[in-house]
Design a protein around this nucleic acid. Structure first.
Length: 321
DNA sequence: CATCGATGTTGAG
DNA sequence: TCAACCTCGATGG
């Protein structure tokens, strides 16, 4: 269940360990057999994320486009190294076995390693055997397996997984708003500011609209609005332009932090005991997200929650007045 | 063990 | 507006 930062980290993992290699593509689950056959054996040329979408570019103008949606995840195994930024952030992305290979789940850096925690016994045994050899046997419903001579990536549960050609890729990209990791910094900001200024839609919905800005999900939405002290129902066009610019720049900041740490760090402004306490609780490390009824960390007013477009929106009615 | 809900999107009605 | 998609961790009995 990633927001944009996770997908950028996945793209980086593909760049580090798969780009430049011929890739054997299969669909152990069978549901993507035809698509896998199209890319099977081709060299991976590039891996890029735009918002929550991942584009793997193969030879012959062939792209694999993946959107993880709500449940999707990539599992990497083989000679996958934990990069320095992950290690320094205390991330537990991968677990090294005796032979120096790593099995890591790439939903985000804090996810459990190697296998779901509640594997059936038979699956645990299979996994144990699999780690000893390479490649490991696929576990569960693997939509796509991408395999090089020393690394493997398993995709499960994606919302979207398609083989595309350049014109299709262009069409997808055309529908996406700016991504601070992709677009030129000021160009992205100008696009975002200009779009928001035309919309009467509440800013709380605009931030979730991938055609307005790419990569923001429900957590970052709530946290960005709190950090900016903006009332979520405010129409976009009613916001003062400097505030909209600040929103964009804060998204740029949080996204870069997220990509480097693998965590949705939104309380970097906290210090001392409050920060430690927040980090100690994995489920309560944000300003307002998932904190309905709890006292605002700034003013102690109970955090409010409502459904907006089918998603839970959290905010402090006092700080974000 | 059964049930629920989730960091998301699409398409039907 | 809402169900479907599809997976798994959290929760409760």
């Amino acid at each position: 269940m990633p927001e944009g930062h996770s997908v950028h980290r996945i793209a980086r993992q593909f760049r580090l360990h798969f780009v430049g290699q011929p890739v054997a593509a299969t669909s152990p689950q069978g549901r993507f057999a035809a698509g896998a056959a199209e890319i099977d054996g081709r060299i991976l040329l590039d891996a890029r994320a735009v918002g929550k979408q991942l584009f793997l570019e193969f030879e012959n103008d062939t792209y694999l486009r993946v959107h993880l949606g709500m449940y999707g995840a990539w599992d990497f195994a083989g000679d996958i190294t934990v990069d320095a930024t992950v290690a320094s952030a205390g991330g537990r992305m991968g677990q090294t076995n005796q032979r120096g290979t790593v099995v890591g789940r790439f939903e985000d850096s804090l996810a459990s390693i190697g296998a779901p925690r509640r594997l059936r016994m038979a699956e645990s045994e299979r996994l144990g055997e699999a780690i000893e050899g390479f490649p490991p046997a696929p576990i569960g419903q693997v939509r796509v397996r991408l395999l090089t001579h020393n690394a493997v990536a398993d995709l499960r549960g994606p919302t979207a997984c398609d083989v595309l050609h350049p014109e299709d890729v262009a069409a997808v990209l055309a529908k996406l708003g700016p991504d601070p990791m992709v677009d030129d910094r000021s160009a992205g900001e100008e696009r975002f500011v200009a779009t928001v200024a035309t919309k009467s839609t509440p800013i709380g919905l605009l931030l979730m609209d991938q055609s307005v800005v790419s990569g923001i999900g429900n957590v970052y939405r709530a946290e960005l609005l709190f950090r900016a002290r903006i009332e979520p129902h405010t129409p976009g066009k009613a916001l003062a332009e400097p505030h909209v610019r600040d929103l964009w720049r804060d998204w740029d900041t949080l996204l870069h932090i997220g990509v480097e740490t693998g965590q949705m760090m939104t309380m970097d402004g906290l210090t001392g005991d409050a920060y430690e306490a927040a980090l100690a609780s994995r489920d309560d490390r944000h300003w307002v997200y998932h904190r309905e009824g709890k006292p605002c960390r700034v003013c102690s007013t109970p955090i409010r929650r409502e459904f907006a477009a089918g998603r839970k929106l959290y905010w402090c009615p006092s700080c974000q007045a």
